[in-house]
Write a protein that binds this DNA or RNA. Structure first.
Lengths: 231, 231
DNA sequence: ATTACTAAAAGTCGAGTAG
DNA sequence: TCTACTCGACTTTTAGTAA
């Protein structure tokens, strides 16, 4: 297989072309892979010639289905990455742009039902205010999503007179070389979209690190070894 | 990242360059990635420029170490493949047109030598009559052929006074969302051509699903993980 | 031994366009 | 619409070779 075909094959896999023929035109595929219609057409022709996919031409494009052989190509790549990546010191870096949220974070953090748990599960009482990072690249958003798969630190939900509050999960993290903090990896009730990473710390990070809105911050997130979703 | 860099980056990961600097020369890397020394050199230069790896030049080559950013690139690919491949139900869908066969299926199924095996290998006594689907698209015919590559459920051949009967193999399948059945994936002696898919079920499917000749039926075939023939 | 330059070949891609 | 061709531009690779 040519290396240029790897992203195309992955794209087709993500479009579900492994289980059932996926209806897609060369123009639409071109958009998916960020190339021209002509390139998409050529990729399909070549992948077809290599026996990695099969097509039926229809009025509005083609029905594309990956063959077992095509899926196996991806399995080979996957297997290499799996063994190597899962043995790694489990951490990822996520970069985002600092912005001021609705101060919801500050409100939730200050609630007794949560803050008591932070105290003994994190070992510190968090500063009453979270750092909100807007994730701008698809890569950071992808990594953000991956965080949900790790168990991390479980903070139970609770109820008060007014309402109930859902559980959240945190992952220990670090900004710079020494500033330890934690990021919210998943919520029972999502209150932000997936392009936002919220950081909790024992101190006022804005002050300590001299940050201002628009700064690009890199957070190093430590992943717990066991995933909640088994492979 | 350029797609040509993907195999190189994976190679470096496998060489352990993610955890500790890996000692490697451009010539050695060239061999690893199946390219020329010059190509390997260029890849290293470019990956370095992109910030995906760092190098220390030594006498006998370079010490190469992937950066978090480089590892993250691979994590993105890994994450895409992971969700798609691991959640990929090992199944394919085949669509065909119902037709009435020569009732050969019914005859074979009713033979004691087969039906006893169906009973304990499938867990049910099949209805005495099979559903014959005529595969009309080249794609479905292709998928039909591919089924032969999976071991599936082996039903031994046998002999009676008159003649001997060949082995057959079945794959578990489903019609609609709940109707479980099995399809014949391969025969020792083919009695139908490859444009026909024969479905076996514990009940009369025509009756249960209200089917009639000419109806287009989609069967979901579950593939056993191991292939008998490797690609 | 190395790495990495230049130049040329080979390959990839996109614009225009035919069927 | 669609797919996929040609052709020119750009990119990547290789051979030769310098340092």
């Amino acid at each position: 297989m040519k290396s240029a075909h790897i992203p195309t094959l992955i794209r087709l896999l993500l479009l579900g072309a492994a289980t059932k023929p996926a209806q897609i035109s060369t123009t639409a595929l071109a958009k998916e892979i960020g190339k021209s219609q002509q390139a998409a057409s050529k990729h399909l022709l070549e992948l077809e010639r290599f026996g990695y996919l099969e097509r039926i031409r229809t009025r509005r494009g083609s029905q594309v289905r990956l063959t077992q052989s095509g899926i196996n190509q991806l399995r080979i790549i996957y297997a290499s990455l799996k063994t190597a990546l899962e043995e790694l010191p489990p951490m990822v870096e996520i970069t985002g742009e600092l912005f001021t949220g609705l101060r919801e974070g500050a409100y939730y953090v200050s609630l007794k039902g949560y803050s008591k748990q932070f105290m003994w599960k994190l070992g510190y009482e968090p500063y009453r205010g979270t750092l909100n990072l807007r994730l701008t690249t698809p890569m950071d958003i992808r990594i953000r999503k991956e965080l949900m798969e790790y168990p991390g630190i479980f903070i139970e939900g609770f109820e008060d007179e007014k309402r109930s509050y859902g559980w959240v999960r945190l992952l220990p993290a670090q900004i710079g070389d020494s500033t330890s903090c934690a990021v919210f990896s998943s919520f029972e009730r999502t209150h932000y979209d997936e392009t936002v990473l919220e950081v909790l710390a024992p101190v006022n990070l804005r002050q300590k690190l001299g940050l201002k809105d628009g700064d690009r911050i890199t957070v190093r997130v430590f992943l717990t070894p066991e995933k909640t979703k088994t492979p």
